[in-house]
Design a protein around this nucleic acid. Sequence first.
RNA 1: GGGCGGUUAGCUCAGCGGUAGAGCACUACGUUGACAUCGUAGGGGUCACUGGUUCGAUCCCAGUACCGCCCACCA
Length: 912
Amino acid sequence: MPSSLPTTFNPADIEARWYEHWESTGAFRPERPDAEPFTIVNPPPNVTGSLHMGHALDNTLQDIVIRYERLRGKDALWVVGMDHAGIATQMVVERQMEAAQDKRTNYSREEFVDKVWEWKAESGGQITRQLRRLGCSMDWSREQFTMDGHFTKAVLKTFVNLYNDGLIYRDKRLVNWDPKLKTAISDLEVEQQTIPGSFWHFKYPLADDVTLADGRDYIEVATTRPETMLADMAVAVHPADERYASVVGKHVVLPITGRRIPILADEHADPELGSGAVKITPGHDFNDFEVGKRAGIAAGDMLNMLDGEANVCQTSDGLVPDEFIGLHRFKKDGEAGARELVVERLKADGFLIPHVSKDKKGNEVVADAEPRKIATPFGDRGGVVIEPWLTDQWYVDAETLAQKPIADVRDGTIEIVPKSWEKTFFNWMENIQPWCVSRQLWWGHRIPAWFGDDGECYVALTEEEAQAQAGEGVTLTQDPDVLDTWFSSALWPFATLGWPEDNQPLLDKHFPNNLLISGFDILFFWDARMMMMGQYNMGQAPWPKLYLHGLVRAADGAKMSKSKGNVVDPLGLIDQYGADALRFFMAAMESQGRDIKMDERRVEGYRNFATKLWNATRFCQSNGIGASTTLKAPTARLAANQWIIGEVQQVCEEIEKAMADLRFDAAANAIYQFTWSKFCDWYLELIKPVFADDADPQGLPAVETREVAGWALDQIFVMLHPFMPFITEELWHAQGERAYDLILAQWPNPRAEVSKEATDAIDWVIELTTNTRSAKNELGIAPGAKLAAYLPEPSALAASTIERSSAAIERLARLTPVSLEEAPSGAAMQVSAMVDTFIIPLEGIIDIAAEKARLEKALAASEKEAKSLEGRLSNANFVERAKPEAVDKARADLAHHSAEVERLKAALARLG
RNA sequence: GGGCGGUUAGCUCAGCGGUAGAGCACUACGUUGACAUCGUAGGGGUCACUGGUUCGAUCCCAGUACCGCCCACCA
């Protein structure tokens, strides 16, 4: 017997209970050895992370897919785990130490790493509990961590293989250096921000009594970074720039340091910009580095004037004056830095060219520098200005690794959805730069490279192997650096499944994965690198399809950020509206290629939808409609029952189509509209007469209807389950004894014969009902008033429907039994249903003028339609050239509207 | 500078060759035995602009304007 439900639905009461039940019964990963595998891997959240809206969207979409495929009988595996998140995690632990007046460097490396592991055990992984609250059905029994032993093995093996293949190498060049975190970072971790700054102009005096063609004895250079002039090694001019042709190959004497530096001809200098001469600091600027190399300066000889914290240090030529040593690169904590001091000295010595501008009144204003907006690189984690810094780092030859992924996308081996991202993908991949993978941190995968005393490098899986390579007697020191976090997460699609060990059945079955869902913001960070590593390690693409979704924005369209204070917490929404409502919101708003704007009212609306289903189920229970015992649609005779079976079939196909296309919005809207507008609004109303007091509860109609209604409701539970797992599971069990949980139920396969006559009959009843209600409303007749109706010349459909479904007609349209007699004369309103026109006498009740006006309005609308169609059909070009279907449809529509016009005219005539 | 996307009802968004839809909001009515987190009915749109292709354009093409994002660069 079905259990009885409370009158209102409270998500909090059921969510935790069902999640615990699913997880403890292994429902997320049922044993299905013979089933077709379906696999997705979850983008591993940072171990420091907590659930934000982006996660909520990303994981909802994945859970919808995995629950859908599980219901369809697949061996569905959703791999889950966490990322050790090198920089982020080390920062968290260091910040904690700082709060306790402690610091990392008070400990040995081993001690510190132990402390991070302790932190992880105690405070890490908050997000995994939060994902459970969202209802995500991942396989927690195999939860992964990128620093697990077997995962580390995969990382080291990949590194060693890449090294042996010449695809990882060590190089001395400029890197993006984060002086706060004191580590190198990759290009992708640098964010350009435009900030207000200054543009200074300096005189660099020419050496050896040389002058320019115009007689000047100095070269003017301009810079936004004056402090770097302490390490200038040249001045460059364009080879074709006549102004400087005479001094190319000569020298200038750098102010402050007195360094004698050459004037070079290099294409990099743009004659159109400023003076056309540019200072060259190979050790602190990416462009200048290239100019320096072209001029034959070896990386090792490039001057470096900053230490790892961006404080000034002595250059190798010893020319930086003592007063600069130890100064920060620029103003910090209110104290002047090297930048300010350089400007001050140059000004004092007459090498500064002041900037002259005019104020609003036209007066001349003289300043040290021109104010300018300057695009400045910032580290995405540390938040400080990135310093191009000359160091030895490990680089991955990304260009080589990118070739196969490019081909995979090009030839369709990997489909990117939406397709518009392909261009962006190609653009990046085809211009990809070497990937700096070493990080000067303690938390992470330590690079498996050892150096001998002579600096010789040995790369091996273990120290023993490295020692064997080096030979006995060589003292080895391991490279202190760790790898970029993304280097390890790039292995996620296969290292989580057992690679590189032999005989891994899980790997054989579940790699390649079937689909990857990720935000477009990590397309390059993660997705592209998985493609590279998938091809490199596994020889194939990690998945055939990549679905990219957008960002969840604040209600005003702004990006959510802590600093703006506009972050909406998904857990707060779950508390308030339930996880099902939040999930449904995410799905319904996810149309491909667009960001989602937060709209709390919409979440509320989907909570209401859940309540609606809850109450519909309560209604069913009160009429003895319980759990269905059949998977197939029951055989039905009653029109309403046949109709709903046909509708279930339709919505099921719609959802399947939408899911195949990854149109989450279309799938969500289909089940929403079906449940509310079809099942609740019409079907439940249509069957109410079957369960009325005077009906026989054991009669055939009641028995059949209970069977069909129970079945249809069950199909709703199944189809809605991927979107709203909690309430559907609850109601599934509330409906009666079940052989299995809904999460493991079977996707509908409602192939049933439904007669067209039956479905037409219901469509006819719906139209009659709607039109009657509308007419009553317009004429100001109480909706509840029961009216007599006459249909003297019924169509065949009308005659049989009136006979078979009289109770429904009477109840829904609020009519007394329809008479097929002539209507009595007198005032009446006239209501149509398809081709039939009902006469509803209202002598003394209605205002004839009002009814006339109503009919005339309808007549005008129909005439307008008919006229437009006539016009189109009388156009020879249309009839000849348009698609035959379009012409046929226009003809049918015209026939329909013409008939409508006739009916309305007749109705008006009857009113006199 | 290069690339991508957007502009449809008051708001948030679907639709993308046959004359416009949803949710919310709004208006009127409603204690009809599941549900007021509800029901019924209704109002509301020259689909940013200008050209072109087409029998026909919100939809395709070209351009314009405004908004947003990504990449590169600005010494």
